[in-house]
Amino acid sequence: MCSDLLAKRLLVVTGKGGVGKTTVAAALGLVAARAGKRTIVAEVARRSDVTSAFDREGSRPFEEVQLARELFHISIDPQDALEEYLRDQLPPGPLVDILKRSRMFGLLAAATPGMRELLTVGKLWELAQLDRRTPGADAYDLVVVDAPATGHGVAILKAPRTFAAAAGSGPVARQGTIIDATISDPAQTAVVAVARAEELAVTETALLRSALHEAVGLELERVVANALEPDRFTPREAALLESQRAHPAVARALSDHRRALRQRAQLARLRKLTGHKPARLALHAGGADLELLADELEAQLAA
């Protein structure tokens, strides 16, 4: 199962805000790199002033930075993507600079519905090509996308299709069609949904499943339940704890147990609504250690 996942070109990691998409995407990247895949983790529309899951201070946005053996990282900004696209489409020279500086051009690019999403997905697609357009760039085996939350994440995947339809003809329509063919091909692109075992996060994962299907005809490839709390007590133990509930530490343990029961119910719901047995990642008190998370993820994905 794990190797199936790593055999894709694009792994899109999305889910509700705050569930730990970035961390899971980073851990997935590490799993792939360990398996010998030349992998790049692409963070979409990430701000440079927020520490990323990887320690890569001082690097410029849009730079492909090597983090570890076979593991790279890039932060994708639509403005950078636009400039790269222009350089790519136009003969080298002052023209590119004129356009870059042109307020009108920036305005129109921003004003064109879905343009930012298209430029972003275009760059993701470029990263996934064996024959890269970026001069001197080597190919990657796998691109792991740390995508925005559910709604915007789906909008990005849908952009090429929307554009191909809206533009009708011309290079954008052509390219939109090509990119969409990669995005909507389950052999090349897989979506990994990250959730927590909480009601709203599970509900949103179910919505993601249907939105994804509707937008680009893709199904969820895997579901990851992140930040799970320990589920320690058997029913017998819980009954014994009840008898000693006057003790504050026991009362505390009982409250843990009640949370664990709710968590179980939500995991079952997640499974039912997505049709997937979720991979489980534990909540780590000291903040997530990536190597450790990658270990867990490896074991879970192989299961």
Binding site: M104, A166, G170
Partner: peptide
């Protein structure tokens, strides 16, 4: 001229129909 260049490139990149809509 700068503007017409911008216009021309936009047309080339985004496709005519879309510009019409805009």
């Amino acid at each position: 001229a700068g503007t017409s260049v911008v216009f021309g490139v936009l047309k080339r990149i985004t496709g005519v129909d879309l510009l019409g809509d805009i």
